[in-house]
Amino acid sequence: MRYEVTTPKRQVAMVLDLNKCLGCHTCSVACKKLWNTDSGTDYTYWNNVETHPGRGFPADWQQTGGRTATGDVKQGKVPNLDTEYGRAWQFNHKNVIATDASSKKKDWLRPKGDPSWGPNWDEDEGTGTYPQDNHYFYLPRLCNHCAEPACLDACPRKAIYKRDEDGIVLVNQDRCHGYRFCVEACPYKKVYFDHERQVAAKCIFCMPRIEEEVAPACARQCPGRLRFVGYRDDEDGPIHKLVEKYKVAIPLHPEYGLKPNVFYVPPMSPPKLDDKGRPTGESRIPMSYLEGLFGKEVHRSLEILHAERAKKKQGQSSELMDLLIAYDWNDNFKLDNPKAREVI
């Protein structure tokens, strides 16, 4: 029987402006260094950045989740460590260090074994023909802390729950028996299996930081200032403005029906060129591709973005553009919590 998911008192959320992501992976590194360096989770990236069009991480995650394109449950897949996640690389540091200038056979730093896939494997490949329509963009991904989480509904042990105070979706690893139905079911493939401790593990939205009004590490460390964090009900906060007021931030794969709380400002792109190198006016990133990721709302979102950008170009004011530009980085995060300790 499907579980009832109670609406939390508040819902913390994140918006990522894909027009500003430079693919530096600082977010992934910040997250990983903070939460996932153990041997059982060394392959995991609670936050990853993938090049689109591309296969992503884990490979082909959009085809292996537990939801159909109409939001129905289907049997998902637990990704393989070698072919879909990519085993964490071990390097031949000792051999390289042992090599000196006089050595006849010089070794170079390389991963042991013969890896065939990994996070960011197809970075910057994209698609299209240069210079007419070649294109790619970066898609940073993390757990969406959905309003109706597929992972929560997949656990026969009720080991996954949504916190009442902020809607963060968490795994109670004391209850988890490592069945991995959650890994199968999440269509975003953002629940991982700690194969050493044999329990599920996932993004906790840097919960201890949120409690102290500090944004998650992925957001705070982002050099591109593309991440916004706040509560959905805070009308003065960036989330409400981008999602509800201007309606430019939209969820990834809304058709799965899980009501994500991570939103994206979709990428605008330069026009395609014709045979003579003249701009055609047609978007270089095909709208059909963006629609496949973000649904039909992507059309309206891009129209608003183009209109507001045009206003700004003409010297008019635009609250939306000012917010997205992040003139004042502090405006990106608004996490007022009356229960937070004073951090000195």
Partner: peptide
């Protein structure tokens, strides 16, 4: 009879 909505449908 499995608890939750996933296993009963997916399997």
């Amino acid at each position: 009879m499995q608890p939750g909505g996933y296993v009963m449908k997916a399997y």
